[in-house]
Lab assay of single mutants.
Amino acid sequence: KNAAKIVNEALNQGITLFVSDNKLKYKTNRDSIPSELLEEWKQHKQELIDFLTQLES
C-alpha cells in the first residue's frame, strides 16, 4: 500500500493524519483506532511523514 491510499482509508474512517514536529499524528472523533490501522501506520511511518509533509508544503 502506498501513503496516499493509507491516508485516504484513514479519512474514510473519520481519521485525519498529519505531521507535527516531524512526528505522525492523528485527529479523530472516534473512541478508538483499530489496531490494524495503527500497525499499518507504524509500518509505513516514514513514507506517511514524507507524503504528508510534501502535501503541506
Rank of each mutant, 00 (worst) to 15 (best):
I6M: 10
E36N: 09
K25Q: 13
I15N: 01
R30W: 05
L55Q: 12
S20E: 15
S20A: 12
K45E: 15
P34F: 03
I6D: 01
I49Q: 03
A10I: 01
T53R: 11
G14F: 04
Q43N: 11
S35P: 14
S35T: 11
P34A: 05
L17C: 02
V7P: 00
D21H: 09
Q54A: 14
T53V: 11
N12M: 15
L52N: 00
K27H: 10
L24M: 03
V7H: 04
D31F: 07
T16Y: 15
K45V: 15
Q46W: 09
N8K: 15
E36D: 10
T53D: 05
K27V: 09
E9Y: 07
V7C: 05
L52D: 00
D50F: 11
K5G: 07
E9F: 07
E36P: 06
N29R: 08
E36T: 10
K27T: 10
Q43W: 08
S32W: 10
K23W: 05
K42R: 15
H44F: 13
E39M: 09
I33N: 01
W41P: 00
F18N: 02
E47F: 05
A10D: 00
N29H: 11
K1N: 10
K27G: 04
Q13L: 15
L55F: 12
L17I: 05
D21G: 12
L48D: 00
D50W: 13
E9H: 07
L38E: 06
G14T: 02
D31I: 12
T28S: 09
E40T: 14
S20I: 14
L48K: 00
K25S: 09
Q13V: 07
F51G: 00
K25W: 15
Q13Y: 14
D31C: 09
W41T: 02
N8I: 13
S57N: 13
K23A: 10
V19G: 01
T53Q: 10
D31V: 11
L38H: 05
K5V: 13
L55S: 12
P34V: 03
Q54Y: 10
E47H: 05
Q13P: 00
E36L: 07
L38P: 03
K23P: 00
I6E: 01
I6P: 00
E47I: 11
V19E: 02
L38R: 06
S35Y: 13
I49K: 03
S35N: 13
Q43M: 14
G14Q: 05
E39F: 08
L24N: 00
T53L: 13
P34W: 02
E9A: 07
Q46E: 10
Q54N: 12
I6T: 03
E56M: 14
A10E: 00
I6R: 03
A4M: 12
Q54S: 14
L37T: 05
G14I: 01
N22P: 01
D50S: 10
I33W: 03
L24V: 05
L52M: 03
A10V: 01
V19R: 02
E39W: 09
V7Q: 02
T16A: 06
N29S: 13
F18K: 03
L11V: 06
Q54M: 13
I49M: 06
N22V: 03
I49P: 00
S57T: 12
E9Q: 07
I15Y: 09
T28Q: 03
P34E: 04
S57I: 14
E40Q: 13
R30H: 07
K23F: 07
I15L: 03
I15R: 01
D31L: 13
L52T: 01
I49N: 01
G14W: 04
Q43G: 06
I6V: 04
N2S: 15
H44V: 04
N2I: 14
V19W: 04
S32Q: 09
W41I: 08
K5D: 15
L11S: 07
L11T: 07
A10T: 03
V19A: 05
L55A: 10
A10C: 04
E39L: 10
S57W: 06
D50R: 10
L11Q: 08
N12R: 14
I49S: 02
A10Q: 01
S20Q: 15
I15M: 03
V19I: 07
L24F: 03
V7L: 06
I6H: 02
N12G: 10
V19S: 04
F18G: 03
E40C: 15
E40N: 07
G14E: 04
F51R: 01
K23R: 08
N2Q: 10
L11K: 10
E39I: 09
F18Q: 04
Q13E: 07
N12L: 15
L17W: 02
F51Y: 15
D31M: 09
G14V: 01
R30S: 06
T28K: 03
Q43Y: 10
A3H: 02
N12K: 15
L55C: 09
K42Q: 12
L24T: 00
Q46H: 07
T16C: 14
Q46D: 12
L38G: 03
E39H: 08
K27I: 09
D50P: 03
K42W: 11
I15D: 01
I6Q: 02
V7T: 03
A3C: 10
K23L: 12
Q46K: 09
Q54K: 14
G14K: 04
L48P: 00
N8Y: 14
K45R: 14
N2H: 12
D50I: 11
S32H: 13
L17Q: 00
D21S: 06
W41E: 00
K42E: 15
K45W: 15
N8Q: 15
L24P: 00
V19F: 05
V7I: 13
L11E: 07
S32I: 12
L48H: 00
K25D: 06
F51N: 01
P34L: 04
H44S: 05
F18D: 02
Q13K: 09
L38D: 03
F18S: 05
A4Q: 12
V7E: 01
S20D: 13
T53S: 11
P34G: 04
L17M: 04
V19Q: 03
L17S: 00
K1Q: 09
K42G: 08
E47N: 05
L55N: 12
K27W: 09
Y26I: 04
I15E: 01
K42Y: 13
T28N: 04
E56Y: 09
I15S: 01
